[in-house]
Computed example of a mutant assay.
Amino acid sequence: MTAPVVVVGSLNVDRTYRVRRLPAAGHTIHARSRSTAAGGKGANQAVAAALLGADVALVGAVGDDQGGDDLVESVAAAGVDVTGIVRVDAPTGEAVVLVDADAENLIVVSGGANLCLDAAAVTSAVRAARFVVAGFEVPDDAVLAAAARARELGARFVLNPSPMRRLPAGLLGPGALLVVNEHELAMLAGGDATVGERARAASGRLGGCDVLVTLGARGALLHEASTGHPAEIVAPRVDAVDTTGCGDAFMGALVAGLAADLDPAAAATRAVEAGAFAATRPGAQSSYPTSEELTRWRRDRQ
Score class of each variant (00 low, 15 high):
Val56Phe: 10
Ala95Tyr: 10
Thr83Cys: 06
Gly53Tyr: 01
Leu71Trp: 10
Val88Leu: 02
Val82Lys: 03
Thr92Phe: 05
Ala76Cys: 09
Gly68Phe: 07
Val72Ser: 01
Asp69Phe: 08
Gly68Tyr: 12
Asp69Lys: 11
Val72Gly: 03
Ala78Cys: 14
Ala90Thr: 04
Ala95Ile: 08
Val59Ile: 12
Asp100Gly: 13
Ala61Pro: 04
Leu98Cys: 05
Asp65Cys: 04
Val82Trp: 03
Ala78Phe: 12
Ala90Arg: 14
Val96Phe: 14
Gly68Arg: 09
Asp70Ala: 15
Arg87Trp: 08
Leu58Gly: 06
Leu98Val: 12
Val72Gln: 04
Ala95Cys: 11
Gln66Phe: 02
Val99Gly: 02
Val62Ile: 05
Gly79Asp: 09
Gly60Lys: 05
Ala54Thr: 10
Ala90Cys: 06
Gly79Trp: 09
Gly53Phe: 02
Leu98Asp: 07
Ala101Met: 04
Asp65Val: 08
Val62Thr: 12
Val96Met: 14
Arg87His: 12
Val96Arg: 06
Asp89Ala: 15
Val72Ala: 05
Glu94Ser: 13
Gly93Arg: 02
Ala78Thr: 12
Ile85Arg: 00
Val86Met: 01
Glu73Met: 12
Asp89Leu: 10
Asp89Tyr: 09
Asp55Val: 11
Asp64Thr: 05
Val99Asn: 05
Ala101Glu: 15
Gly79Glu: 09
Thr83Gly: 10
Val80Cys: 10
Ala101Arg: 14
Ala57Phe: 00
Gly63Phe: 04
Gly67Thr: 01
Asp70Ser: 15
Ala101Thr: 12
Val62Ala: 00
Asp55Arg: 15
Asp65His: 06
Gly60Asp: 05
